[in-house]
Amino acid sequence: MTAPKVAVLDYGSGNLRSAQRALARVGADVTVTSDLAAARAADGLVVPGVGAFAACMAGITAVGGAAVIRERVARGRPVLGICVGMQVLYDLGDEHGVRTPGLGVLTGEVRRLAAPILPHMGWNTVAPPAGTVLFDGLPEAVRFYFVHSYAAKPTPEDTVAEHGEPFAAAVERGPLCATQFHPEKSGDPGRQLLANWLGTLR
């Protein structure tokens, strides 16, 4: 069986190589690229991201990635956002009073967590909804690795974690998936989640 082709979008942000290595370990044929034709053609597109929402959106826009991500979502082609790569999928990011439009393929706003200690950094449990694909085969109260101060409010269909308040730890909207945590830094559970996502590309 041919390995699924995965493109990790290079727009100047994110743990590109660690995401690449983690996906390769679970059987993907991975390319880190800013080439839009490759991003369009891949079986799956990964949108990584670290740092500020506004900076990530600026980087995505600068390489022309916004149109490709929206196009893939509209056509039902798989996309996986990671950390700030998840956040930019929402309508809006509000950081330090600066409101930055996001990609708008997920409904909602990304705001600072109401928590006594920020960033939320380290291992935390998540509560997936029934029927999840990403978390299939993982035990209850499984832990993943988070590093963030901002997040979106969860909907009833989202995977939820809590740090000061409940927030969306992962979303699954058919071919559009995203995680607020870093699966590539989350050991065996992260590998299983990435393998599950890869399985949706076959």
Rank of each mutant, 00 (worst) to 15 (best):
Y145D: 03
Q20N: 10
L89Q: 05
A28Q: 01
T2C: 14
G65I: 09
G122K: 14
D91Q: 09
P183G: 02
L201R: 10
P48E: 06
A67P: 03
L23G: 00
T33K: 07
T125V: 10
A130G: 15
T107P: 02
K153Y: 08
Q87P: 05
P4C: 10
R17N: 04
S149P: 06
A7W: 02
P78N: 00
V68R: 02
P4D: 08
L23H: 01
A66W: 11
P154L: 08
A19I: 10
E95G: 08
S186E: 05
V126R: 04
D188Q: 13
G108W: 07
L16H: 10
D158T: 12
R25S: 14
M1E: 15
V84K: 01
V30G: 01
G85F: 01
M1D: 15
V32H: 13
T61H: 15
L89W: 08
G102E: 04
F146V: 03
G102R: 00
S18A: 12
A67N: 04
A38Y: 03
L118K: 02
E172F: 10
E165C: 08
R77N: 07
E95Y: 01
G27E: 02
V50M: 10
A127H: 10
T155H: 15
D188H: 11
P119A: 12
V110T: 04
P78T: 05
E172G: 06
T107S: 15
L9P: 00
V105A: 07
G59W: 12
H163P: 00
P183Q: 02
D35C: 04
D29V: 10
A24N: 11
E157Y: 08
G190T: 04
D188V: 13
F167Y: 14
E165T: 14
T125S: 13
V160N: 00
G65D: 13
G85M: 12
V73A: 06
A58I: 02
R191W: 08
R191M: 07
A170K: 07
G108K: 00
F146M: 01
G49W: 02
W197L: 03
V32Q: 12
M86G: 08
P175C: 09
R173H: 10
M57N: 03
T132N: 09
A62Q: 12
A38I: 09
A54P: 14
Q192N: 11
H182Y: 13
T155I: 07
W123N: 14
G97A: 06
N124P: 00
P175N: 13
N196A: 04
V142A: 15
D188P: 12
I117Q: 15
G12W: 11
S34W: 10
S13D: 02
H148I: 10
M121N: 07
P48W: 09
T159A: 03
V30N: 09
V84R: 11
G164W: 09
A170G: 11
T31D: 13
G137L: 06
Q180S: 08
A41E: 15
R191E: 15
L193G: 05
V30T: 12
G199S: 06
F135R: 11
Y145L: 05
D10G: 11
H148E: 05
V79Q: 00
L118Y: 14
T125R: 15
Y150C: 05
D158R: 03
L106H: 03
T159Y: 01
K5D: 14
L106M: 12
S18H: 04
A19C: 15
M86V: 05
R112L: 09
R112N: 07
V84M: 03
T200I: 01
R70K: 08
G187P: 01
K185Q: 13
T125I: 09
V68L: 06
L198H: 07
S149Y: 14
G93Y: 07
